[in-house]
Simulated scan of single mutants.
Amino acid sequence: MPALDLAERAMTHPWLTTDPLGEALHFLRMSGTFYARSDLTAPWGLAIPALRDSMMFHVVTTGRCWIELPGTGAHLLQSGDLALVPHGQGHRLVSDPGAPVTDLFALPRVEVSDRYELLRHGGGGAATNLICAVVRFDHPAARQLLPLLPPVIRVEEWRSPQFEWIQSTLRLMAAEARELRPGGETVVTRLADILVIQTIRAWIEKDPAAQTGWLGALRDRQIGRALALVHRDPVRAWTVAALASEAAMSRSAFAARFTELVGEPAMQYVTRWRMHVALERLKEDDAPLADLAGRMGYQSEAAFSRAFKRVVGISPGAARQVADTR
């Protein structure tokens, strides 16, 4: 793949050199999405089991409820609020603290499609309507970002002026989920993508923990530029010297600052990012491994396979088999 110079890159992707954090969030794509619309009447309680390698979110479209996670206590969610559970941790949704709880999968549900269900449950009292989803982020950017997120992110300020358009998004999502018009599932999926990204952005803007580590490095003018270039063009034959030049730093100063901010040496980061990009490509097509090795910048399949197994933990062939069984 020919390497574009920095000016050409900036013309093609103008946010690249000015907003590396936005560039990283741009990569996030949801997959394996499953939705449920819940019509609930008090008293009610749902026990949501832990779901490995998944993220869950709940949007309250009408009424109110509480979300309870071990170690974080109970948190009130009102109409228009959203709660994101980034690590797939088991939790409970209840009409009020202390309400009786039933395992989610023990309740009868109406299957609208392979990925969309309707749930009705409760004792006939005050009504609460939820849109809930289980999603996955498989891109390398997600592998960097998700471990940094807290156990639960609650967004309760959609009502502020800068979030007015999010209110419209929530209303549209609620209408699509309620009316189930043709194509509604696709619309809800796209809207959910926006909501999850916006929730993560809201957390990044407010939480001091988001100012350090990988996220802090993306905000650094020089290291952030280098990271964005690696993310956009992972197969380029990067060296520490080349990255330092792009960052307008000396080789030694760049190497030290990169390790300090990111938490690992630059070339180790490049290799790890490249191998996770390769993992995504393995899932997307069935091209011979030798072809993929060449596209990832390796002269031989053996060298690529060694690097892949060192980073991912299994061979490329085994990774492809796992992807094929999903």
Results as ranks from 00 to 15, higher is better:
residue 325 T to H: 12
residue 190 R to F: 06
residue 248 A to P: 03
residue 56 M to L: 14
residue 91 H to S: 07
residue 305 S to Y: 04
residue 257 R to V: 00
residue 47 A to C: 05
residue 116 Y to Q: 15
residue 247 A to F: 07
residue 198 Q to P: 00
residue 185 E to L: 07
residue 183 G to T: 08
residue 278 A to D: 09
residue 257 R to M: 07
residue 32 G to I: 10
residue 162 Q to S: 14
residue 248 A to K: 09
residue 16 L to Y: 04
residue 120 R to S: 15
residue 254 F to C: 13
residue 184 G to P: 03
residue 14 P to E: 13
residue 218 L to P: 04
residue 1 M to E: 13
residue 177 A to M: 10
residue 162 Q to R: 11
residue 217 A to R: 07
residue 250 S to F: 03
residue 49 P to L: 12
residue 55 M to K: 01
residue 172 L to S: 12
residue 118 L to T: 08
residue 5 D to W: 01
residue 200 I to W: 02
residue 80 G to V: 08
residue 53 D to A: 14
residue 71 G to R: 09
residue 231 H to G: 07
residue 282 L to M: 04
residue 313 G to V: 02
residue 282 L to V: 06
residue 108 P to Y: 01
residue 60 V to W: 09
residue 269 Y to D: 01
residue 141 A to E: 08
residue 70 P to Y: 01
residue 187 V to S: 14
residue 277 V to F: 05
residue 224 G to E: 09
residue 191 L to W: 00
residue 147 P to C: 03
residue 267 M to K: 06
residue 297 G to D: 04
residue 238 W to Y: 05
residue 242 A to R: 14
residue 323 A to P: 05
residue 319 A to V: 05
residue 257 R to D: 07
residue 309 K to C: 06
residue 157 E to V: 09
residue 156 E to K: 02
residue 85 V to I: 15
residue 48 I to E: 02
residue 293 A to W: 03
residue 39 D to T: 12
residue 6 L to I: 13
residue 77 L to C: 13
residue 7 A to D: 15
residue 251 R to P: 01
residue 310 R to H: 10
residue 259 T to F: 00
residue 308 F to N: 08
residue 233 D to P: 06
residue 311 V to K: 00
residue 165 W to R: 15
residue 266 A to Y: 00
residue 104 L to M: 06
residue 111 E to L: 07
residue 88 G to P: 09
residue 67 I to L: 11
residue 291 D to V: 13
residue 104 L to I: 02
residue 316 P to D: 02
residue 274 R to P: 08
residue 84 L to C: 01
residue 68 E to C: 14
residue 219 R to Q: 15
residue 256 A to M: 12
residue 18 T to Y: 03
residue 292 L to Q: 11
residue 168 S to L: 14
residue 163 F to N: 15
residue 273 W to Q: 07
residue 227 L to D: 06
residue 126 A to P: 00
residue 81 D to T: 02
residue 61 T to W: 09
residue 209 A to L: 12
residue 223 I to T: 12
residue 7 A to G: 01
residue 53 D to T: 05
residue 179 E to Y: 15
residue 275 M to L: 03
residue 302 A to F: 08
residue 41 T to R: 15
residue 79 S to G: 14
residue 82 L to I: 15
residue 227 L to R: 04
residue 65 C to N: 15
residue 226 A to K: 00
residue 209 A to G: 11
residue 236 R to L: 14
residue 132 C to Q: 10
residue 316 P to R: 01
residue 182 P to H: 13
residue 3 A to D: 11
residue 317 G to I: 06
residue 49 P to V: 05
residue 126 A to M: 05
residue 246 E to R: 04
residue 235 V to H: 12
residue 259 T to V: 10
residue 103 D to V: 06
residue 25 L to F: 09
residue 129 N to Q: 13
residue 137 F to W: 11
residue 22 G to F: 06
residue 200 I to H: 00
residue 140 P to Q: 04
residue 193 D to R: 10
residue 223 I to C: 12
residue 266 A to R: 00
